[in-house]
């Protein structure tokens, strides 16, 4: 009973941490290699998206739908929202749509990473690094 509750808590924690930052859940689950892999891949794609959009795509005023999707990567989105809040569009950015596509894809792929982190913790014993069969 206690073990089951502990396992459920660890699964929830892994998913929550992955939602906060890609790879953080895997780090808690005892998979540092996979954590770095997902962090670099998803963080890099998200950053490329931001750069293509001139760092102006994370805005509830300009792109409410996309910004809601970006929230699937919570920490990077909230940080970008805070840092780029005051930026104004002074000239046309031709790659805004491409930037939104890149960042939204990175955010949606984080759902897969959450599922993976959950699976790793679910298939492991509480207190030991997980093993995937």
């Amino acid at each position: 009973m206690i073990l089951a509750r502990l396992l459920a808590m660890r699964r929830f924690l892994a998913v929550l941490l992955t939602w906060f930052l890609p790879g953080l859940g895997h780090l808690v689950a005892g998979r540092p290699g996979k954590a770095a892999y997902f962090f670099v891949l998803l963080g890099g794609t998200y950053f490329i998206g931001l750069a293509l959009g001139g760092f102006r795509i994370v805005s509830f005023d300009r792109h409410p739908f996309f910004t809601s999707v970006f929230l699937l990567q919570l920490a990077p989105t909230l940080t970008t929202l805070e840092l780029t809040e005051g930026l104004r569009i002074t000239e046309e950015i031709l790659t805004v749509e491409l930037g939104c596509l890149f960042a939204a894809t990175a955010a949606l792929l984080n759902v897969l990473v959450m599922i993976d982190a959950d699976g790793i913790v679910a298939s492991s014993r509480p207190g030991s690094p997980g093993e995937v069969s």
Binding site: K34, G44, I48, L52, L98, L101
Partner: peptide, 20 residues
Amino acid sequence: FLFLLLIGVISLVCSAVRRD
């Protein structure tokens, strides 16, 4: 090039799920 890059990232992430 950017679309192929995006497809590459999707492939890498999807392949790493449930594989070690």
